[in-house]
Write a protein that binds this DNA or RNA. Structure first.
Lengths: 325, 325
DNA sequence: CTGAAAGCGCTAACAC
DNA sequence: GTGTTAGCGCTTTCAG
C-alpha cells in the first residue's frame, strides 16, 4: 500500500506537507503542491481512512437506523438523507432494526464504538422506559413516531394532527362509517388518537380494524376479513400509505372499488401514492425538510453543540387524490 | 475516552489480555476473563473501531452502490443484503449513484481508500469502455443489468430470457399488438432484445414506446401520450414493475382498464407487485438468492480468493397475476 | 511556508 | 496463559 510517507519521499517533502496538500489546506507553495500532486498521481496514492480516523477521532460516516429499509417510506427518507449527507461529504451506513426494541438498543450501544460520528435513529420499538438507555454521550437524533422524553433532539411526525385532518376530510366527504386500521403492537398511537378525536367530534362511532403487521399484505387480509364478517364501513383512514394500498387491495378482493364503494386515505405520501390506481389521498409530511433538519441537528451535535434538546415537528399537508373522490 | 490500556490497568493485566477477552479468543483463564469483563463493565469501555481498523486493515463495513435507493427493487435488495451482511457481522454503507457513469466511477475509486472492505456495485451507467476502471486490486462484485467483460464476479439478471418469457406469455394470451416500454438512455437493452425475439418469432410487429426516464411517472406519461396519439396496442411488456405500475396508471388516465382493455407485464417482482390493483404479472428473479450469492462472492474475494471471475445468473420464474388475466 | 516528533488505540508476533 | 515490543497511517502540536 502506498502511504503518505512514500509520496513525501517521492516528492522530496515531509509527510506533513503531503497531508496539507491532500486536505487542501492553505500555506502550501503552488510548486510544492504541484510536485506533491504529481507524486500522488504517479504512485496512485489514496489516503487511508483508518489512519485518519484514528488520528482525528472521526469517521466521516453517520449511522441511520430504520425499522425496515424495504418500505417506501423509509427507502424514500434514506435516499434523501444519503443525498443530504453526501453534499456534506458524509457517508451513511444503514442499520435495519426490524422495529424491535432489542435491535434498537443494540444499535445505540454499538454506535458508541465511534464507528459512526453520529446516529439518526428512527425508533419504533423503544418506549418511555428505555429513556435512560438513550442517555449516551454521543450525538443521536431521534426521528419518527414515538413520543417520549429522552433528552435528545427529536424530529416528530405530525401524527395526531395529520390523522385528524385525514379523518375530517372523509367526514367532509359525507362519510359516517369510517374505519381505522389499528396497529397491533401498541396502544400508544397518536394517529389513532387523531382519528378518534375527529370521529368523536363529529358524533360518529369509531370502527377499529386490527391488523397483524404493518405491511401491505396484512392490511389487505384484515380489510378482506372485516368485510367478510359483515363489518360495515364506507371509508378507511389507514395508518400509512402502505396500509392504504393494502386496504384497496383487500377491498378489491371483496369486489369493492375505491373510491366508488369506499373512500381511503393514507399517511406518508410515499412517491407511489400519486401513481397507484386509484391514486391515494394522503397526509404528506415534507420528506425533504425531515431529512434536512435531522441532518442539521445531528451535525450541530457532532460539532459539539450543547443547546437543550430540540423538537421539530415535520410540516405537512393533506393531498387529495382519487381514493377519496 | 476509556481505552484498553485503562481497562488493563484496572484489571491488573496487560492490554493484550484485554484484547484477547474482547475478541473472545481462547487461552484466557476464566478468572482473568471475569476480572477483565468486570473492569470493562465498570469503566464502560467500548472498543475503538478506528484503532482496530488501522491495525487490522479491515473495517467490517462493505459498500453497496445502487442507482437509486428510492426504488422498490433496490430498496428490497438492500434490505436483503443488509440482513445477510448483519448475519456475518458486517455493516453495509449505501451509496447512491443516480445511475450516472461519473458517480459510479467515483464510488469505485473512493472505495479503494479502504473505507470499505469490499464493494457491491449495481452498475447502470458504466459501459464496456470503462472496463479498465474496474481493474482495481480491491474486492468488487458487479450486480445487475449491464453485461460487459470486466474481470470481476458478476451477478446478472436474466434479462433476455425474462423479457422473452413475459412477451411469450402475452402472446399465449392471444395478444397481437404488444408494446414495449423502451428506456431512452441506451440501445443495449437485453430485455428489449428478449421482447423483440419473442415478437418476431410470433410474426408480430414490434411496437416501441420510448419513455423519458425509468420512473413510474414517466411511464404513465409515455403510455398516456401513446394512447392519445392513437397508437394501437393491446398489451404492454414493461421494462420493470415500476414502469408497469406507471403504464397501468397511464392507461387509467386514458380511460382504459387493466386487464379488461389492456394486459400488462412487469419485471422484478417487487413486493408491491402482488398487492397493487390489479396485481402484476411479472418476471420474478430470486432476490434472496441474489443477495446471498453477491455477498458470498464478495466475502470470498475479501478473503483473498483469486479464482477466475465468475458469473451467476439469477434464477427466475414468471408469476401470473391479474394484470394479464 | 515546511518539517520533526509524538501518539491516536489497537493487535500480530513473539517471548516468557 | 500472559506480557512486551512494535507499528499500522495519519495529523496535531510546535519549531524553524
Amino acid at each position: 500500500m502506498v502511504t503518505m510517507q512514500d509520496v513525501a519521499q517521492a516528492a522530496g517533502v515531509s509527510p506533513m506537507t503531503v497531508s496539507n496538500v491532500v486536505n487542501a489546506r492553505p500555506h502550501v507553495k503552488p510548486e510544492t503542491r504541484e510536485r506533491v500532486l504529481a507524486a500522488i498521481q504517479d504512485l496512485g496514492y489514496r489516503v487511508n481512512a483508518a489512519g485518519r480516523n484514528l488520528r482525528t477521532g472521526r469517521t466521516g460516516t453517520i449511522g441511520f437506523a430504520v425499522p425496515e429499509i424495504d418500505n417506501q417510506y423509509f427507502a424514500h427518507l434514506i435516499a434523501r438523507v444519503v443525498d443530504e449527507a453526501a453534499e456534506r461529504g458524509l457517508r451513511v451506513a444503514i442499520e435495519q432494526t426490524g422495529a424491535t426494541r432489542e435491535t434498537e438498543i443494540e444499535v445505540v450501544s454499538t454506535s458508541r464504538n465511534r464507528l459512526y460520528d453520529g446516529l439518526l435513529l428512527s425508533t419504533a420499538g423503544l418506549t418511555d422506559a428505555d429513556t435512560d438507555l438513550l442517555q449516551v454521550d454521543y450525538p443521536i437524533v431521534l426521528l419518527g413516531e414515538s413520543l417520549f422524553d429522552a433528552p435528545l433532539d427529536h424530529i416528530i411526525m405530525p401524527n395526531h394532527e395529520g390523522a385528524r385532518e385525514a379523518t375530517e376530510h372523509l367526514i367532509a366527504r359525507g362519510r359516517r362509517k369510517i374505519a381505522y386500521l389499528k396497529r397491533p403492537d401498541t396502544d400508544m398511537d397518536p394517529r389513532r388518537a387523531g382519528y378518534l378525536e375527529a370521529v368523536t367530534a363529529a358524533g360518529l362511532e369509531p370502527i377499529l380494524i386490527e391488523i397483524e403487521a404493518l405491511d401491505i399484505g396484512s392490511s389487505a387480509r384484515a380489510v378482506g376479513a372485516a368485510l367478510a364478517q359483515g363489518l360495515e364501513f364506507d371509508a378507511i383512514a389507514a395508518f400509512t400509505d402502505n396500509l392504504a394500498v393494502g386496504a384497496i387491495r383487500g377491498a378489491a378482493d371483496a369486489g369493492l372499488r375505491v373510491p366508488d364503494d369506499l373512500l381511503v386515505t393514507g399517511f406518508d405520501n410515499v412517491p407511489l401514492a400519486a401513481l397507484t390506481v386509484p391514486s391515494l389521498t394522503t397526509i404528506a409530511p415534507d420528506h425533504a425538510v425531515t431529512a434536512h433538519t435531522a441532518l442539521e441537528f445531528l451535525l450541530e451535535r457532532m460539532a459539539g453543540s450543547t443547546v437543550p434538546p430540540r423538537t421539530f415537528t415535520i410540516p405537512h399537508t393533506l393531498i387529495e387524490r382519487e381514493s377519496s373522490r
